[in-house]
Amino acid sequence: MTDIISVRDLSKSYGKKEIVHPLNFSVKKGEILVIIGPSGTGKSTLLRMLDIIEPASEGEITLFGEKVTKHSAHSLRDRMGMLFQKTVLFDRTVEENIALGLSYRHVPKEERRKRVEKILEEMGMSEYARRRSRTLSGGEGQRISFARVLVTKPEILFLDEPTANLDPGATHLLEEMILHENRVNKTTIIITTHDQAQGQRLADRVAVMIDGSIVQLGSADEVFYHPANERVAKFVGIQNLFTGVVRNKTAVSGGVVFCPAPHVPDGIVQIMLRAEDIFLSKNPIDAGHISVQGRVVSSERSGAFLHVMVDAGCIFTVVCPFRQTETTYVSGDIVWIGWRTDAVHLV
């Protein structure tokens, strides 16, 4: 696959404050790139720069093999589309709202009608055509906003928190539409989201953006299970972070042996283990896993999951489905915890 987007030393400042620090990365044609990170870290600003809505302070952007300049910006923008977090529809019919982007591109009236009819049929929303936008629910409105972008046949699609204000059902529908657009039309899609599970569901690659910089870029498995550093680990929800040492080709912390480390030099390491990768039992755990005995510090239910803190030399957080636990755990209980050695990540 060839690069459809490439940025070099791209940055954005407002006055003396640099919001986006110099970035260098590329996106392949047909790829879904999901950008995650805390609020205020520059994700939306980056998206607006890539869509040529917001001018960059420094650096350059190359789209479709052509550098973005004042002269090329208009023609390049016609090949892209943006869906914003907040649904914005005019007080017109659904079909009139969808046709707006085509009108701005001077598409003939009959062609507009056919394309609007086709996109509504593909989405299973043909019956919405004559409805006024003000009668739509939030999820319906966002789907119509998405249709308004898709009907222009963008080669690159930017989605800025597209499901942030939607319920789970509407989110699922929009995600299906996103995947369909990517798979059927090979559209390159860049998404910003706070929903990390959504990132894992949709992404070919995930970029973690913190304090205006992309601190890790890789597959969902790399980012969520092999974070580059402690900042990324904390952001992606790894709750068990321990400072330890590698000695005699073994990673140890607090007297707990975590895993063999035959390829890691002796010295201090960060030991990372996801809470959901730890087994919990009141009986010894089979010999196929690393296991240690400990005492329950606390136990509480959070939705469908049970969160248990266990002191086993280190304080471990364990998360397991509430309905799958065969017993209850209370403070003071003696338990065993265990994990597969390949679930441990060392930095």
Rank of each mutant, 00 (worst) to 15 (best):
F258K: 09
D195N: 14
R112P: 11
C259T: 15
S298R: 12
L157G: 04
T327S: 08
A207W: 07
I98G: 02
P262E: 09
T45E: 08
V232F: 06
E18G: 11
E140L: 02
A129Y: 02
D221V: 07
G141Q: 09
C259P: 09
D211N: 15
E96H: 01
I178N: 03
N97S: 07
R131C: 00
L100W: 14
K86L: 00
D204I: 06
P321D: 06
T171E: 14
V68Y: 07
P38D: 08
M125A: 15
C259S: 15
T192Q: 03
E111C: 11
H345A: 10
Q142V: 08
G288M: 12
E96S: 03
Q198D: 11
P108G: 09
L47H: 12
I190N: 11
S137F: 06
E222M: 07
P108C: 05
I214W: 13
I238Q: 04
D195R: 08
R205A: 00
F322V: 02
I315M: 08
R205N: 10
H172Q: 13
G244W: 09
H345F: 13
R113P: 04
R274Y: 04
Q270A: 13
L23I: 08
R205T: 04
S72P: 08
R231C: 00
T69W: 02
T187L: 04
G313M: 11
E95G: 05
V236D: 13
I271W: 01
E181W: 07
P55I: 12
L179C: 06
V246F: 13
K114E: 15
D266Q: 05
G338R: 07
L76T: 02
K12V: 15
M1V: 07
A73R: 14
L273N: 01
K234D: 12
E175N: 09
M80E: 02
Q239I: 04
A228P: 02
G81H: 01
R183V: 11
I53A: 13
N283A: 14
S133N: 04
A207Q: 09
W339G: 04
H106Y: 07
W339R: 06
V149A: 13
W336P: 02
V68S: 13
T135S: 14
I19N: 14
T341M: 12
M82L: 15
A197F: 02
G244V: 07
K43N: 06
E222T: 12
S57R: 10
G332N: 01
F158T: 00
V34S: 06
T93A: 05
A73L: 08
S302L: 15
L102R: 15
F235A: 09
H263R: 10
Q270V: 14
T2A: 15
G254T: 09
T2H: 10
E95W: 05
Q196A: 00
E60T: 06
